[in-house]
Design a protein around this nucleic acid. Structure first.
Lengths: 332, 332
DNA sequence: GCCGTCAGTTTGATCGTTCAAATGACGGTC
DNA sequence: GACCGTCATTTGAACGATCAAACTGACGGC
């Protein structure tokens, strides 16, 4: 196949210079109308496309954002991340940005990858997910002043007023709070919470939303596992038959609870999940929807500014370095 | 922050030339041991990283593969694609390749994106998914001799002996065949198939696997939808109570069937799904696992050769232009 | 008639790497 | 001792775009 045309080829055909072609492509408004039309015709005639690598080299910008994919966990929770990746790709495309995936099995491996990608100019910024207390990645990135945003708050002293870095997260407490309020409004008075063992920031937040919604009822604890959840709920219901609603920290737990409720022959008990995965949708359970689309928009807003098209390094300012998305209860 | 070091900086510190540094990075075996060690020390000391864009510009290779993400459908089936993307990212990383996502809502939009990405040198090849009969994308790509592989067969006259392009797919008939055989082995003799309306290649394949496994039993047809599936199965069972096994074309359908079976109080009926999504796992249903990891490996093998590290344009040769993955029945 | 301004366009330099060809060192062969 | 081949390394050029600065007319003010 013939060599791909370059700016010079277009310039020759249109009877202008390289730079004018470049201007037509990048900043059309500074070119005179007549010239612009001539150049555009030449571009169309030759089928010219800017060569991405050359542009990246000169501008020192890749217009690409990296995002980590965990080793596939198999569980239900991965769905939220996948939806987030979907949404991020769509939103990024609207701002002329690309999304590059990278895989890593351990934080150390991930740090090595991050170095290659960011310092090699492969990406302009990264989105890291699943942050935890004392996460080595954030410190490493901050030390080098590399641009990034995390999906998941820093879990530091004060994430909002003195944020260590940019972050986006879903307000888990608001989600379980809404679920609890919904059950209260439907006449349930004794509402249980089915959650994970304490210490995980996310789980604690979700529990807080239930507790603060004036819910009286037992708190059941179990690992993230459908059949374990089922057993815990079965035992819990036997001990406390007055429960008429169960708010769960995840959809996996909700499915377990649903199975226990069904087996116990207690259709009067309403189970509400968290994440609104296809699995609970199929079962007809209500669930808290994380709105990954809003999370994706928020991440880009933080990295690039509200309407920017380039990644601009930003110093985290009190109150302005995060986006906290209010989830939505999907009632079924 | 200080300017990132370049090959020249490393060369100066190590007392060698640019090119030798480049050789140490790319073809270490042609550099004398002593020199190599000196250069490696300099690289480590300066924290040098090759600049991706410069390398891409010079080598005319991006070492990146593009893959399309459909607009998020919400259903269960998207999970297989997401797992495939996961696996592709991991396998690609092992071959020093990156995976770039792109979004498009229509085939036309996708073609525009493909042009930008491939002809602009942003990616070396693309993986297209969800091919259908008369797909405009494949023709467009073939016309321009752009490297690509599809997840999903071309659905042409003879995909195997006279393939139009490279493709990977899962042997759907083998999957439903295995499911049917499993039920027969467990003593079921009357086995129903719950599938989609005819005409979709994928669905027809899956039905064929059931039919050819010497299964006698009704064939129920319904759109991909949990509650519709439930209703169809409920009606079917009422009309034909002798059925003791149901092989389904998807997990969504299987969940519907499972609900109908449960409501009908027929625990003797076994339901088998297709895709092995977290949802059926949570419900404890058996399902046919597509093995997206093998599909990903197959796609890369086709694009780059068994052990290659660069995308090599390949002419589809009879029998050697596809990978057909044998799925695995997961019994629960 | 001269000068400054400004919009529109062109020119030269540069981004960091790898390719292709040239160079140098060394040993073996006749 | 001249020649050749091989191995390790160096040198000059090129990849295709954009930045920054220089240039060109046209226009208006004085």
């Amino acid at each position: 196949m013939a060599k791909a045309p370059t700016v010079d080829d277009v310039a020759r055909v249109a009877g202008v210079s390289r730079q004018t072609v470049s201007n037509v492509v990048n900043t059309p408004d500074i070119v005179r109308e007549a010239t612009r039309l001539r150049v555009e015709a030449a571009i169309a005639e030759l089928g010219y496309r800017p060569h991405a690598a050359a542009r990246r080299l000169r501008t020192r910008r890749s217009s690409t954002i990296g995002i980590h994919l965990d080793p596939y966990a198999g569980g239900i929770s991965g769905v939220v991340l996948d939806r987030f990746v979907h949404a991020l790709t769509e939103r990024a495309g609207e701002r002329d940005m690309r999304v590059l995936l990278y895989a890593a099995r351990t934080p150390e491996e991930e740090i090595a990858r991050l170095g290659d990608l960011l310092e090699g100019g492969e990406v302009d910024a990264v989105v890291i997910t699943g942050t935890f207390h004392g996460d080595p990645r954030t410190g490493w990135l901050l030390d080098r002043a590399l641009p990034f945003v995390s999906f998941g708050r820093p879990w530091g002293e004060d994430d909002v007023e003195a944020p260590a870095h940019l972050w986006v997260d879903v307000d888990g407490a608001a989600g379980t709070g809404a679920a609890t309020a919904h059950l209260l409004g439907r006449g349930s008075s004794r509402i249980a919470f089915l959650g994970w063992p304490g210490g995980s920031g996310t789980g604690d937040e979700r529990e807080r939303g239930w507790r603060e919604s004036a819910a009286s009822g037992p708190r059941w604890v179990v690992e993230e596992n459908v059949s374990a959840a089922r057993d815990v709920v079965a035992a819990g219901l036997a001990a406390d038959p007055g429960v008429t609603g169960i708010v769960c920290a995840s959809d996996s737990l909700a499915i377990g609870a649903h199975l226990a409720v069904t087996v116990a022959g207690r259709p009067d008990i309403t189970v509400i999940g968290f994440d609104n995965t296809p699995a609970v949708e199929a079962l007809g359970l209500s669930s808290v929807e994380q709105l990954p689309e809003k999370v994706a928009s928020g991440a880009l807003d933080l990295l690039m500014g509200e309407n920017g098209t380039v990644v601009a390094p930003r110093v985290p300012t009190a109150g302005a370095a995060h986006v906290l998305v209010e989830p939505r209860l999907v009632v079924r």
